[in-house]
């Protein structure tokens, strides 16, 4: 059984103006669909990556997975427990202890007034666990020194802070870590250190990652399976080799073509057309239809289902199952 099973996950935000303004300006409620009918499974001890441009709903999915946000509809099952609907408090607590998250901004994700020792030990301390020497051990595990435990976050660089975040995430011995753009704020050489560390820890502790990123090369390096998001919808899912060699969805193809390449000297990219539509009023049918070179009439009326095509799953009317 998969460790995580996400099915028909949808999250709608009410982004209307305050009630009084709406009445005066005679505007209807504005509902923003950040995540729309997304389903995928994460197998134990694998890395599942979500890629997509900003606003595609990656963080929202991550937050629903760890329970920071509730789904509007659909469900997230972790080890068979649905966090949003489970009533047994003990079960919820057990599952929660198994999930941790690493955030993008290494500066905002550590409380500036706390010592590193207390920051790292908090997940255990909050459950009344034994924390003596814990932070020091974890600091050494993530490549920092035990004596760093007495310092404050501002004494560390971005990369070192991200290591502290990783140490905190490891403290409660979780099974699943949701990593939301963990290296997007870091320089390449530091990113390499952090990515290597994450790979090592994964092997050492048998971790499962949901790895969220907008960077295709990073995702390709880390993932066992990749889900591509566009405007809150999962448009393609495949293993990295398949996805990068034979991308099937027109959006994935566009994304791969647009990504700058280290050996793309003087490459003249045909720049992608159009922009991401407004998520409050998404286009009818396939959300990608205004930009898609293959768009046909059906694309403007009917939303494509995610279909199994070879080893991939693709949501596009025009991709042939025989491809």
């Amino acid at each position: 059984m998969a460790l995580v099973s996400v099915s028909h996950l949808t999250r709608i935000f009410d982004v209307s103006k305050p009630w009084l303004n709406r009445v005066i300006e005679r505007q209807p409620k504005a509902l923003l669909t950040a995540v729309s009918d997304v389903s995928f499974n994460i197998e134990e001890q694998t890395v599942y990556a979500l890629v997509g441009e900003s606003g595609s709903g990656k963080s929202t999915i991550g937050k629903m997975l760890v329970g920071l946000l509730e789904p509007s509809t659909g469900s997230v099952d972790i080890r068979g427990v649905d966090l949003a609907r489970e009533t047994d408090a003990q079960k919820i607590d057990d599952v929660r202890a198994d999930i941790q998250m690493i955030f993008q901004d290494p500066f905002a994700s550590l409380n500036p007034r706390w010592r590193v020792r207390d920051i790292i030990a908090e997940p255990v301390a909050a459950r009344g666990g034994h924390t003596k020497g814990l932070s020091e051990r974890l600091l050494e595990q993530v490549g920092l020194a035990a004596r760093d435990a007495g310092k404050f976050p501002h004494e560390f660089s971005g990369g070192q802070r991200q290591r502290i975040c990783i140490a905190r995430a490891l403290a409660s011995e979780p099974k699943l870590i949701v990593c939301d753009e963990p290296t997007s704020a870091l320089d390449v050489s530091v990113q390499a250190q952090v990515l290597n560390l994450m790979s090592d820890l994964k092997d050492e502790f048998g971790l499962t990652y949901l790895f969220i990123s907008h960077d295709l090369t990073v995702v390709q390096h880390m993932a066992d399976k990749i889900g591509v998001l566009y405007l809150g919808r999962l448009v393609e899912e495949a293993d990295p080799d398949t996805l990068f060699e034979t991308p099937k969805h027109p959006y994935t193809q566009m994304l791969l073509a647009a990504a700058p390449q280290l050996d793309g000297f003087g490459r003249e990219v045909i720049p992608p057309t159009g922009e991401i539509p407004d998520p409050i009023n998404p286009p009818p049918g396939c959300a990608y239809n205004p930009r898609c070179p293959l768009a046909a009439d059906i694309c403007r009326t009917k939303r494509p289902e995610l279909r199994q095509i070879g080893t991939s799953r693709v949501a596009c009317h025009m991709v042939d199952a025989t491809d």
């Binding site: 660089s157 390449v188 050489s189 390499a192 790979s199 090369t217 280290l262």
Partner: peptide
């Protein structure tokens, strides 16, 4: 050379990234 090595590259697949130790 180190910068190039630490950039993830399609052709290198999942091989460990080259690390420049320390920071600037």
């Amino acid at each position: 050379d180190g910068l190039m090595g630490s950039t993830p590259l399609a052709s290198r697949g999942k091989a460990r990234l080259h690390q420049i130790p320390g920071a600037m």
